[in-house]
């Protein structure tokens, strides 16, 4: 397999995962803007959505002030935002197109029809309450792609590169969401915890589609400690850092087995997983949640770089 092919598969999956995550973040931002203003105000909420999506700086370079309509456009359609849903879907498709022969027909059709249907949507069509429907559609398309990948792709190197990309992106996304609101999760907040905080905690869970599963696991009201535990250390929660890292490790192990290469990627991914396996929330809060998350993001990124270096991504 060409190094460039591996890179394209990796990034194709990363961008589809990112499109889905951006859609979910936008959905949460939109939902907050519909709920009565408690305290800090809407503007702040779109700001944290932009930060969690990792694109606040770009937004402020283009627009003077944050408002809901502009933030939505920026997150979904703006060509100047490299992580807008439009750019994610287009980049994913271009990567898929560049390695067309490494994809199954189902995967290609999922990518291609998504892009074609997206191109026909005009931002103006989303006014008058059609935004949620559109965001659902984005998530469905991501599911369609993921389903066709899982259902049709040979479990060879190509599969492992795709999985590595998807789960590195997912871990990155979850860590960012936590980091934006880490202060509302600090134990000292629990005692304070009024309605505002409870809704903030719920927002975090919604951003990773975990507000229902939380109840199943903890059988309790939202508590910041549990929320952090669920999203960081839970081996069952499919968007937690621990879960994502498990899958990244499966991918790097699969690649090493198939190629005999990838020592550095395997070491980085393995060490990061060990950190999560041996961590506990006491220690994380004691040493600083923000510091923990910052370090995680750096190390997760290092796994990505090690894969690129080990496997000759150009």
């Amino acid at each position: 397999m060409l190094g460039r092919t591996a890179a394209s598969l990796f990034w194709m999956s990363r961008y589809i995962e990112r499109a889905e995550n951006i859609a979910r973040l936008t959905e949460v931002g939109y939902r907050i803007s519909l709920t009565p203003d408690v305290g800090s105000g809407h503007r702040e909420d779109w700001k944290s959505t932009l930060i969690a999506a990792g694109c606040l700086d770009g937004f402020l370079a283009k627009y003077a002030a944050i408002d809901g309509e502009k933030a939505q456009y920026w997150l979904l359609f703006d060509r100047d935002n490299p992580s807008s849903v439009r750019n994610c879907l287009e980049t994913a498709r271009n990567n898929g197109r560049a390695v067309r022969t490494a994809l199954t027909r189902e995967m290609w059709e999922a990518l291609n029809s998504t892009w074609i249907e997206f191109a026909a949507i005009r931002p103006a069509d989303l006014a008058s309450g059609r935004l949620p429907e559109f965001l659902d559609w984005v998530r469905m398309r991501s599911n369609l792609f993921r389903g066709s990948l899982l259902g049709t792709l040979l479990r060879d190197e190509g599969y492992h590169f795709s999985q590595a990309g998807a789960f590195i992106e997912r871990a990155d996304n979850t860590a960012r969401i936590l980091d934006v609101k880490y202060y509302v999760l600090l134990p000292s907040n629990e005692t304070v915890g009024g309605d505002l905080d409870a809704s903030q905690w719920e927002t975090i869970l919604r951003s990773v589609s975990a507000h229902r599963s939380y109840r199943h696991v903890y059988k309790d009201r939202y508590r910041p400690w549990n929320v952090a535990d669920f999203l960081i250390l839970s081996p069952e929660m499919p968007r937690s850092l621990r879960f994502s890292c498990e899958w990244v490790n499966r991918a790097t192990a699969g690649l090493s087995a198939a190629t005999g290469a990838g020592a550095s990627a395997g070491a980085h991914a393995g060490a990061l997983l060990d950190t999560l396996k041996t961590a506990n929330m006491d220690a994380i809060f004691r040493d600083g949640l923000h510091e923990f998350l910052t370090e995680f993001l750096t190390r997760n990124n290092a796994v990505s770089s090690a894969i690129a270096a080990d496997y000759n991504f150009i």
Partner: peptide, 9 residues
């Protein structure tokens, strides 16, 4: 010789 860059070299 002409070579392609692959994931294993």
């Amino acid at each position: 010789a002409l070579w392609m860059r692959t994931i294993t070299g």
